[in-house]
Nucleic acid binder design. Structure first.
Length: 284
DNA sequence: CAAACTACCTGACTGC
DNA sequence: TGCAGTCAGGTAGTTT
């Protein structure tokens, strides 16, 4: 499940692979991969052919390739999207069920494939979007952005009238945090996921955001988190931060801090993992 | 206007 | 063995 550290790992791989290369052809093999591109698959293929990739940037879980003429192409990995260098894992498009988009380049070097099992990911052309594609103008800066302002994010959290985990997952408040790192950050900050944002002190909100920043920084250094083959870098390799997770996916196992069994609770049609001793629930 | 809810997807896994 | 049900979950659009 790609969150900020995984997307940043992919961004770095894409930059190394794509910078300065001219796209020769694009083949869309599944319409859903370009569902946000209004012109459809044919237009997507046509508009990208002949364009040169100058840079690869990221905000939160979105990344975009900067093209010539100030245009860009925006991508989101969704739940299971992957960019893979070369013709791996299968040179025959028809032979790989998850291949969605295939890129070839003028230099006859390795191609690039976008694969996506669950099809929540996708790409769209973003005219004039080199600096920031208009489609993601509503996405807040993420904690690894040099322009990220903690005081601003703290204020945004405390202005919400909801639980702290919903605020962490709200990409207009702070971006890049998904279910895994939200649970890890809340455990580190000893904060229950339902604690009301409008009753957090500035120091409490700051502690949660600092914990999110720390855990994502450490995960990035480890190459990201992976539980299975769904998340991999552009070379198909998994990160190893899953060995460092303290609560996520560890229901009934001992809390690394106090030994109390970790709980799993239903939350927003998914799960929250938390320590009932370190993270006391708010009064009802 | 903001918060909450739902649809969108496929494959691995569980229980009968 | 087969099959229905559950779970994984980010985002956009809809409803409250």
């Amino acid at each position: 499940m790609p969150e900020l550290p995984e997307v940043e790992t992919v961004r770095r791989g894409l930059l190394a692979h794509l910078q300065g290369r001219r796209i020769r052809s694009v083949r869309v093999l599944h319409d859903r991969a370009v569902r946000r591109h209004l012109g459809g698959a044919d237009d997507f293929q046509r508009v990208l052919a002949g364009r040169t990739v100058a840079d690869v940037r990221r905000r939160g879980k979105y990344l975009w390739w900067v093209l010539d003429d100030d245009d860009a192409v925006l991508a989101h990995l969704g739940m299971s999207g992957q960019f893979r260098v070369g013709s791996a894992p299968n040179p025959d498009p028809a032979g790989h069920p998850h291949l969605r988009i295939r890129f070839a380049f003028d230099d006859d070097g390795p191609g690039l494939d976008f694969l996506d099992q669950r099809t929540f990911g996708g790409m769209t052309f973003a005219p004039g979007g080199a600096e920031l594609p208009a489609a993601i103008a509503h996405i807040a800066r993420d904690p690894l952005d040099p322009m990220f302002e903690p005081a601003s994010a703290i204020g945004a959290v405390r202005r919400k009238h909801t639980g702290i985990k919903r605020a962490l997952l709200d990409q207009t408040v702070v971006s890049g945090v998904g279910n895994i790192y939200a649970d890890e950050a809340l455990w580190r900050a000893r904060t229950h996921f339902e604690r009301p944002t409008d009753r957090l002190t500035r120091a409490q909100a700051a502690a949660v955001l600092a914990a999110a920043t720390d855990v994502m920084t450490q995960a990035l250094a480890a190459g990201g988190t992976s539980f299975d083959a769904l998340y991999v870098n552009v070379n198909g390799e998994s990160g190893y931060f899953d060995r460092s997770l303290n609560v996520y996916g560890r229901a009934d196992q001992a809390c690394p801090r106090c030994g109390t069994p970790i709980r799993r609770s239903a939350f927003m049609n998914r799960s929250s993992y938390w320590c009932p001793r370190c993270q006391r629930p708010p009064r009802a």
